[in-house]
């Protein structure tokens, strides 16, 4: 287990740099809001362009990790592989939770567009809670797998499975922090620019994390090796 934890810490550490981009993009975005005559060649928000570019780039990150997993998914000992470990009903439930968090996120964006701060905050919190529930499910799953004999260093399958789902988990964690920070900033009225856009940016990131899980759920869990 300790290996897994260690890995996650490092993931988190380096991933913070990524979220740094996001935090910065969010902060910079505030100033877009009040520049009424701000010149923009495409008539689009800089922040939103940046976020979509970032998400396009992330596709190649997760693509690489998924490829590594696909290549090594059969490389495990006979008694500790997907057949013994996967608990499809449980993972389906946690996937459903993450899927529904996308609904609550889009409700938050919708509320923010109506300038309805109260509902925006509520939906952000609900989204963060659903995200945390998913994360708790992942922690439970990792500990169960570990107890059943799948250590991080035990096989190629183990290393690539934990790395792929761990990276996704770190992305979810970063998303939860962003949700809560946005919620707090709305509550304290610290967002000087376009509130709706800030919520929308967090939303794009969150949906992307959900979309990645849609792929992982099918490729890793549902399709047998």
């Amino acid at each position: 287990m300790s290996d897994v934890v260690k890995e996650d810490v490092v993931d988190a550490a380096v991933d913070e740099a990524h979220s740094g981009d996001i935090a910065g993009a969010l902060a910079d975005a505030h100033d877009d809001g009040h520049g009424e005559a701000h010149h923009s060649s495409l008539g689009l928000s800089n922040t939103k362009l940046a976020m979509w570019l970032f998400l396009g780039s992330e596709c190649l990150l997760f693509g690489g990790l998924i490829t590594t997993y696909m290549l090594y998914r059969n490389a495990h000992s006979a008694d500790v592989g997907p057949d013994q470990l996967w608990d499809i009903p449980f993972t389906s439930a946690s996937s459903f939770v993450l899927l529904m968090s996308s609904l609550t996120m889009v409700m938050a964006v919708s509320a923010a567009n109506r300038k309805d701060d109260r509902n925006t905050k509520s939906w952000l919190i609900v989204t963060a809670l659903l995200g945390s529930l998913f994360l708790a499910g992942q922690v439970y799953e990792f500990t169960t797998f570990y107890r059943e004999g799948l250590g991080y260093t035990d096989s190629l399958f183990a290393s690539s499975f934990y790395t792929l789902t761990g990276f996704h988990g770190v992305h979810v964690s970063v998303g939860i922090v962003m949700l809560l920070a946005t919620m707090a900033m709305i509550a304290k009225n610290k967002i000087s620019g376009d509130k709706a856009e800030t919520v929308e940016m967090v939303g794009l990131y969150w949906h992307f994390v959900d979309v990645v899980w849609i792929i992982i759920f099918t490729l890793v869990y549902l399709i047998p090796a």
Binding site: K48, L49, W52, L53, L55, G56, S57, E58
Partner: peptide, 8 residues
């Protein structure tokens, strides 16, 4: 946005 994302 669609172009940028789906390119990736």
């Amino acid at each position: 946005f669609t172009w940028l994302f789906y390119t990736g």
